[in-house]
């Protein structure tokens, strides 16, 4: 074993890979890091994907919504002194209100417009919201404390692991299941699915399609806000955090297939794995791996792992 590890360390130049192979505890921690990161991203990307799936609008401002979620968490916990739980709730509700204003005043007018128009509008929103955040919170980097009960580590038998991150590993799948049940098992969910397929027919059946659009936009935006709130303890709220997240979310939803919930879940997990294991094996090259993966998926299955081929050409 030792000569083999030696070979990896010296000849391949990857001490990280050698540790991964020789230390199962370390590998297990990396696995949990991947899952918790993937689940945080899933919550955000699911909102982006849901909004695209129904409204057919790619909302570049989704990252800014995430940033607002993080800032709101800071304000509610650090300035108002309320608990983290209330902050997450406030972030989700705050983003819903913001989304309601944006959808009613702007988005509702661009559903029938060409993609370029939609792109310009959501991009303008990125700039406006970025400046708005600076006006409200300035340009400082804030830190948000871990919630009281989850600040420590949990003993998993083979290793200790941060409780907060474990909570993310549970919360992500719970949100996935809740969204899945809503879409597949409720009449409203079925109507939402139908809205992705044929708006005119749906309204001819007596369903108020604009209301469905508004609700979907609110739910998707609330997920961004919640994702930002959940990320804030380890991803300090600061200007520019919206730009990184939107790129990463795009990688995830394109890998999984835009508009597919299951695809977003799998895409987020893959992204977490590639990012974490990639950075251990070749330090500082984690982004390269993620984009390489994106490139491969785009070349082999341009519509993503779980997307549908026919929606690609629209």
């Amino acid at each position: 074993m030792e000569p083999f590890l030696e070979f990896i360390r010296e000849n391949l130049g990857s001490p990280g890979l050698a540790i991964l192979i020789s230390n199962p505890q370390f590998a297990f921690i990396q696995l949990l890091n991947s899952i918790s990161m993937g689940m945080n991203y899933f919550i955000i990307a699911a909102g982006l994907s849901l909004i695209f799936g129904v409204l057919k609008v790619i909302n570049f401002a989704h990252g800014a919504f995430y940033m607002f979620g993080a800032y709101i968490t800071y304000s509610v916990t650090e300035l108002m002194g309320l608990s983290f739980f209330w902050a997450v709730l406030a972030a989700a509700i705050g983003l819903m209100l913001m989304a309601l204003i944006i959808e009613r005043c702007l988005f509702q007018f661009i559903y029938d417009k060409e993609h370029l128009m939609q792109l310009l509008l959501t991009f303008a929103l990125v700039l406006i919201l970025g400046d708005l955040a600076k006006i409200i919170w300035g340009t400082d980097q804030y830190s948000v404390a871990y919630p009281a009960g989850l600040a420590g580590a949990t003993n998993l038998g083979i290793t200790f692991y941060p409780s907060y991150r474990l909570m993310l590993c549970v919360l992500g799948p719970a949100i996935f299941i809740a969204l899945w049940l809503f879409i597949e098992r409720t009449r409203w969910g079925r109507i939402t699915k139908a809205a992705t397929q044929d708006r005119d027919m749906l309204s001819a059946l007596g369903i108020n399609v604009p209301v469905i659009y508004t609700i979907v936009f609110l739910i998707g935006s609330a997920l961004a806000g919640m994702g930002g709130a959940l990320a804030s303890p380890f991803n300090s709220p600061a200007p520019g955090m919206d730009a990184n997240i939107i790129v990463e979310c795009f990688v995830i939803v394109i890998i999984g297939g835009l508009g597919s919930l299951w695809g977003t879940f799998v895409g987020a997990l893959i992204f977490g794995l590639v990012f974490n294991f990639g950075s251990v094996i070749v330090p500082n090259a984690q982004d390269v791996f993620a984009f390489l993966l994106l490139l491969i998926v785009l070349l082999i299955r341009p519509w993503g792992l779980y997307g549908r081929a026919e929606s690609e050409g629209q």
Binding site: S203, A204, L205, G206, I207, N208, V209
Partner: peptide
């Protein structure tokens, strides 16, 4: 008037 209202 809106299509869904006519349907209703």
């Amino acid at each position: 008037i809106a299509t869904h209202k006519i349907a209703k």
